[in-house]
Design a protein around this nucleic acid. Structure first.
Length: 270
DNA sequence: ATGGTCGGTCACCGA
């Protein structure tokens, strides 16, 4: 089974490109982030025409996540328990940043971690609290094949950005954010792409970052040990940053061998 | 040159 994660930065603007890529890349399940629309605005038809069913979670023009799959999805949930909200004005609102589905016995989360905006901004505290609660749940998930897939808005290592000196007073590389990322690894989760594919996953539209090769590695697939055992390959499709009207992020693809999963129904032979 | 561009939607916010 081939799974992928991609911050598409508006699914309506890029639906043609996304579906073309899905078919060309022989992807079974795609976790999307930043769909930037409500569920009633989602372009389901174009996915369905290509054989993909979509479960979406979007409440307004910001954020939004979805999972497209050509294999059956079960146990779909549209947030995690006690997911923190953000108070732009007035009461905190739980945003459309997380959803999960189980495909072929593998639990897959599509996550759009809050950006953080600036050091000292309330949005950074929100980001850290959001990750803290998610990690509390992840503690209980380690014995199942499960992956946290998405835009983490964290660059775990200095070499995950083009010039660490340019990030001296920035989010994404701060120690609290990196510590939040490492929390998942301490629970036993593995960045299953790191040792299999090099390169960035995001290049800002501003300042000609793509043309200058100045990107960031902030999109990840973090798998539990039972998930990591299934992984047979991974790649970052940086070619998707080129061409007409690209997203500022590119797809991250992981191949898993669901056949190696132990089948409880097989006859026991001693 | 401490910026530069895109989305959303319609005067700006968010990344």
């Amino acid at each position: 089974m081939r799974v992928a994660t991609w911050n598409v930065n508006s699914v309506r603007t890029r639906v043609g490109r996304i579906v073309d890529w899905l078919e060309r890349s022989d992807v079974d399940v795609l976790a999307m982030q930043e769909i930037k629309c409500r569920v009633d605005q989602f372009p389901y038809e174009q996915f369905e025409a290509a054989g993909y069913h979509v479960e979406a979670h979007g409440t307004n023009q910001w954020n939004g996540v979805a999972i497209a799959s050509r294999l059956p999805m079960v146990d779909v949930v549209r947030q995690f328990d006690d997911q923190p909200g953000y108070a732009n004005t007035g009461e905190p609102v739980v945003e459309a940043r997380a959803m999960a589905a189980t495909v072929e016995g593998v639990r897959l989360w599509s996550l759009y971690v809050p950006n953080g905006r600036d050091l000292g901004h309330p949005h950074l505290a929100y980001k850290l609290e959001w990750l803290r609660i998610l990690a509390e749940h992840a503690k209980t998930w380690q014995r199942m094949p499960l992956a946290l897939m998405g835009d983490f808005n964290i660059a775990p290592f200095d070499h995950d950005v083009w010039d660490i000196a340019a990030f001296a007073e920035s989010t994404h590389v701060s120690e609290p954010e990196r510590e939040a990322f490492r929390t998942f690894e301490r629970l036993g989760m593995v960045d299953v792409v790191r040792d299999r594919a090099a390169g960035y996953t995001y290049w800002d539209y501003k300042a000609g970052r793509w043309q200058k090769g100045e990107g960031m590695r902030i999109d990840f697939v973090l798998g539990t040990a039972p998930f990591a055992e299934l992984v047979t390959g991974a790649r970052i499709d940086s070619g998707e940053r080129a061409g007409d009207a690209p997203s500022d992020h590119v797809p991250v693809v992981v191949d898993i061998d669901v056949e190696t999963e132990l089948d409880d129904d097989r006859p026991m032979i001693f």
